[in-house]
């Protein structure tokens, strides 16, 4: 388990982390999710030993690692811009960690072959990073980090520099890899979809603090505050509460607790239909209904309807 206790870190006047504590279970895939400036990368780098906290401690597998330098923490680190050793071949890159630990040549050769196979770069041994695509370079970087059997794998926005399609492929692939290899993995990202799609746990961060920690479902259904709710999905504000658009029911007849609204716009997004409604006070909200529901309600612009939330609003606005 990795335990971060009360860590504070400032860069000049800017407080990057403000008394942050977190426990990361063994073998899990945990995401540090938040907007830029939330401190998530700083936290990751402190876990890695690439930064030192001003106060607080880091424990890795029960041992206090706060003063242990990065090279001795037994971590693997993957950077957003790959950090490939551009003067070395793919083989030399992946072998680097083992070479400096002076492992026997046979063992190095075997492991490099094995890992390149696992990451789908078999046969690319003698290429240089400049000859690889972004996605290939990142896979090489992963193989390189895994080569020395780290206790923890840390990834700093690993797919941020890749285009959308490659990003989606690689994150699924990372999850499958994790399922096979079972290394404790911590992933920094600002993309909530990415975090939700592959993590066991997510720590949502904002302005140097952790807002909430939990599984994807838990965070989505029971957000601790407005920030978390907004970050993880679309919200509509109805009166004093934040509600998910799909938790807004549109009715043709008034019911208890329902309010008047006028349909401003109906947008058909395939299966999903987004309805923009204007409430009595002039506020605009979005509701999301299925195609069938939209059809049966026969929604048109200008129609007068009633709206009600179907889910107990968990979060005051």
């Amino acid at each position: 388990m990795i335990a971060v206790r009360d860590v504070t870190k400032s860069f000049g006047d800017f407080v990057a982390l403000d008394g942050v504590s977190l426990e990361i279970p063994d073998g899990s895939l945990t995401a540090l999710l938040g907007p830029s400036g939330s401190g998530k990368s700083t936290l990751l780098r402190i876990i890695a030993g690439l930064e030192q906290p001003d106060t607080g401690s880091v424990e890795i597998h029960g041992a206090d690692a706060t003063n242990v330098p990065a090279q001795r923490r037994g971590i693997g680190f993957v950077f957003q811009h790959y950090a490939a050793f551009k003067h070395m071949t793919v083989r030399e890159n992946v072998a680097f960690g083992m070479k400096i630990r002076k492992q026997p040549k046979e063992r190095i050769r075997e492991r490099v072959d094995e890992l390149l196979g696992v990451v789908g770069l078999a046969g690319y041994h003698e290429r240089y990073p400049s000859q690889l695509s972004g996605g290939q370079r990142q896979r090489m970087a992963l193989a390189r980090a895994l080569a020395v059997e780290p206790k923890v794998l840390l990834l700093d926005e690993p797919f941020g520099a890749l285009d959308a399609k490659v990003r989606a492929e690689l994150r699924e692939w990372l999850r499958r890899l994790h399922d096979e290899v079972h290394v404790t993995t911590v992933l920094v990202t600002h993309d909530q979809e990415e975090a939700m799609a592959i993590s066991d746990h997510i720590a949502v961060m904002d302005h140097g603090s952790i807002e909430q920690v939990g599984g994807p479902r838990e965070l989505y259904d029971q957000p601790a505050n407005g920030f978390v709710m907004r970050f993880l999905g679309p919200v509509s504000r109805v009166g004093d509460a934040l509600v998910r658009p799909h938790d807004i029911a549109i009715l043709l007849d008034p019911e208890d607790g329902a309010r008047r609204a006028v349909v401003a716009r109906v947008v058909h997004l395939g299966f999903e239909v987004r309805v923009e409604l204007e409430l009595e006070g002039g506020e605009r909200i979005f509701a999301q209904v299925t195609r069938n529901e939209a059809d049966s309600l026969e929604l048109v612009e200008g129609a007068a309807v009633w709206v009600r939330t179907t889910h107990e609003p968990a979060v005051p606005a």
Partner: peptide, 23 residues
């Protein structure tokens, strides 16, 4: 020079001398 290359080497266990000579 890409500082991250040096950090990558550090994270892989290299000491400062190795980072300088090899990276």
């Amino acid at each position: 020079l890409d500082r991250e290359m040096e950090e990558a080497a550090l994270s892989l266990g290299a000491n400062a001398r190795t980072v300088f000579l090899r990276v």
